[in-house]
Design a protein around this nucleic acid. Structure first.
Lengths: 108, 108
DNA sequence: CGGAATCCCATACGATACTG
DNA sequence: CAGTATCGTATGGGATTCCG
């Protein structure tokens, strides 16, 4: 993965590694969803994203986990604990700084 | 391109089409660069992005042009007019709403 | 210098089937 | 319900070459 940047201009570019994570097709959606609703389980996330394939969603969730932007949590359901996903503090910072962009994207 | 969103949760996700543009590996870098420096030519952009291949850079620039986020301009150089790229008003709005995210990405 | 054309590869993504 | 496994395709992106 090449590094940005090495030119004469001072580089305003974010690190490529995080771009790769945030740039994943559904990553921004998942972060926005968790930011808005707190803890969400696998099924509702998948349903909200119009039936994205479970493999793809899992891949997105795992990469977000690796970057410590989300984490798995267990909540008490009617029949025992169930899993869910929620933002880490770092993920919540991302969510906050993502809000203006998300707003602009929707209005553009 | 599947649509987001159709679940019970109200969807906070931005449109997928623009995600695809902004999510391109170098798109955020280019927008940040033009936002900071105004008009920049092909060469300096490429150099600043650590020698990204011309094909890739061209692809990025074209997709940004299609979305009317940047446009080509001609400026008077020493030996006749030369080309450059600059943000459109819409692109500048994107740049503004991108600043918090770019800042967070760099600090994360 | 500013690209366009071509080739090639890695992988993101979707579809489907299956498991605990 | 919450994934995992497998497969196939589309395409983003790098390397190289060539052109005005």
């Amino acid at each position: 993965m090449s590094q940005c940047c090495e030119g004469d201009l001072e580089c305003p570019c974010p690190p490529i590694g995080l771009i790769d994570v945030v740039g994943k097709k559904w990553a921004v959606c998942v972060v926005s969803l968790l930011g808005k609703y707190g803890t969400v389980r696998f099924g509702p996330i998948q349903h909200c994203l119009s039936g994205v394939s479970p493999a793809t969603l899992t891949s997105t969730l795992r990469s977000l986990e690796r970057e410590k932007l989300i984490r798995r949590v267990f909540v008490d359901g009617a029949r025992g604990p169930v899993q869910g996903y929620t933002l880490t503090p770092s993920g919540n910072q991302l969510y906050q700084s993502l809000l203006p962009l998300a707003g602009w994207l929707r209005s553009a």
